[in-house]
C-alpha cells in the first residue's frame, strides 16, 4: 500500500505546486476496495499516454492551446498527448480545410516539444488528397497515425487506399465509432463498420475510438476482429466499462484516451483507475498498448519517446 503522504509528495513534485498538492490530497485515500490496494488518482506510478484529444481548449494559437492542455495533463500525471483535428470542426471538410487543420496540429506538436504526437486528419471522400496529406504529415512530417471522423462510414471502399498507405507507413488508424440510439450522423461509423474494414486489412492496426459510446455493444462488435483495439474515451465514466473490455478483449486490446478538451481528463482516467482489473492491465491500458502499437513507426522515423 502506498501511503497518502508518499502519493502527495510524488504528485506535488509532478505538478510542482502547493495548490495542486492540496487538491490532490483528497484523492490518494481513494483505493479500490475490490481488486488491490493502490492510489486511484493521477498516480505517478503509472505511465499515462492519452491517445485521443483535440485543440478545443482556450487559446488564440495552437501553441497556446496545447500548452494549456499540457498544464492540466501535468496535474493528472499524463506524460504524452496524442492530438488530432484542428478547429473549427467540420463533418465533411474540404481538402483545403483538412490541410489547414493538420497545419494547426503540426504547430501544436512542434510547440509541445515531444510531449504531444499528431495523427493526420483525413476525409476519405477525397482519396487523392488524403493520400497526399498522409504523405505530407506522416511520411514526410512528424505525425504518427491517422484519424478518421464522420465524413464517411468506414466500411466503405473509399477507405481502402488510405488504410493500405497507412499500413505501409506503419501508422495506426484511429476511427471514430459511435452507436447512438438517438441516431448516428449520416457518415458516422459504428464499431461494426470498423470490424468490416479491419477484416479487409488484417495487417493494419485500428483503434475503435469511443468503443461506439454504447460500449457494451461496441466491445462485442470488435471482439472477433483482433486488429482492432478498444479506446475508452468520450463517454460518461460508467462503472464496469473497462472490466468488460478487459474480460472480452484482453487488456492488450484496451486503450485509455480522454477526448480532451471536451471531456475532462479526470472522468476518463477514472474509468481505468477505478476499474476492478489488475495493475498490469492498467499499465497496458494507460500506455503499454499505444507504445507497442506506435513502436514500429517510431523506429522507422527515429523517434525516441
Amino acid at each position: 500500500m502506498q501511503s497518502a503522504n508518499h502519493a502527495l509528495t510524488r504528485r506535488a513534485m509532478l505538478t510542482g505546486g502547493a495548490k495542486a498538492a492540496v487538491a490532490a490530497s483528497l484523492v490518494p485515500r481513494c483505493r479500490p476496495a475490490i481488486a488491490e490496494e493502490e492510489p486511484a488518482s493521477g498516480n505517478p506510478d503509472y505511465v499515462i499516454w492519452d491517445v485521443h484529444g483535440h485543440l478545443s481548449s482556450p487559446g488564440d494559437t495552437p501553441g497556446q492551446r496545447i500548452a494549456n492542455l499540457l498544464r492540466y495533463a501535468d496535474r493528472m500525471g499524463i506524460e504524452r498527448l496524442i492530438v488530432f483535428m484542428g478547429y473549427p470542426w467540420a463533418y465533411d471538410p474540404s481538402p483545403e480545410e483538412v490541410r489547414r487543420q493538420n497545419d494547426q496540429v503540426l504547430e501544436a506538436v512542434e510547440h509541445a516539444r515531444g510531449r504531444a504526437f499528431g495523427f493526420v486528419y483525413l476525409n476519405p471522400k477525397h482519396t487523392e488528397a488524403s493520400l497526399a496529406e498522409l504523405d505530407r504529415c506522416v511520411r514526410d512530417g512528424p505525425m504518427v497515425g491517422v484519424k478518421l471522423w464522420v465524413a464517411a462510414r468506414c466500411h466503405e471502399e473509399c477507405l481502402d487506399p488510405i488504410v493500405r498507405r497507412a499500413t505501409e507507413l506503419k501508422a495506426p488508424v484511429l476511427q471514430h465509432t459511435w452507436h447512438k440510439i438517438t441516431g448516428n450522423l449520416p457518415g458516422e461509423s459504428t464499431a461494426a463498420d470498423l470490424a468490416i474494414l479491419a477484416a479487409r486489412h488484417p495487417a493494419a492496426s485500428f483503434i475503435a475510438a469511443h468503443t461506439a459510446g454504447d460500449w457494451q455493444r461496441g466491445i462485442r462488435a470488435i471482439r472477433a476482429t483482433t486488429n482492432v483495439t478498444a479506446e475508452i474515451c468520450g463517454s460518461d465514466p460508467a462503472a464496469g466499462m473497462v472490466e468488460m473490455a478487459v474480460r472480452e478483449l484482453g487488456a492488450e486490446r484496451v486503450m485509455y484516451g480522454s477526448d480532451y478538451a471536451g471531456r475532462s481528463f479526470a472522468s476518463q482516467l477514472a474509468k481505468v483507475h477505478g476499474a476492478d482489473v489488475s495493475k498490469d492491465a492498467k499499465r497496458l491500458i494507460f500506455a503499454g498498448n499505444i507504445q507497442r502499437m506506435l513502436a514500429p513507426i517510431f523506429a522507422a522515423k527515429g523517434i525516441r519517446p
Binding site: S41, Y72, P237, K271
Partner: peptide
C-alpha cells in the same frame, strides 16, 4: 452507476 473516482479526480484536475 459512475466510477466514484471520476468526481474525485475532477477536483484534482482543476486548480482550486
Amino acid at each position: 452507476l459512475f466510477v466514484l473516482e471520476s468526481a474525485l479526480l475532477k477536483l484534482q484536475e482543476s486548480e482550486l
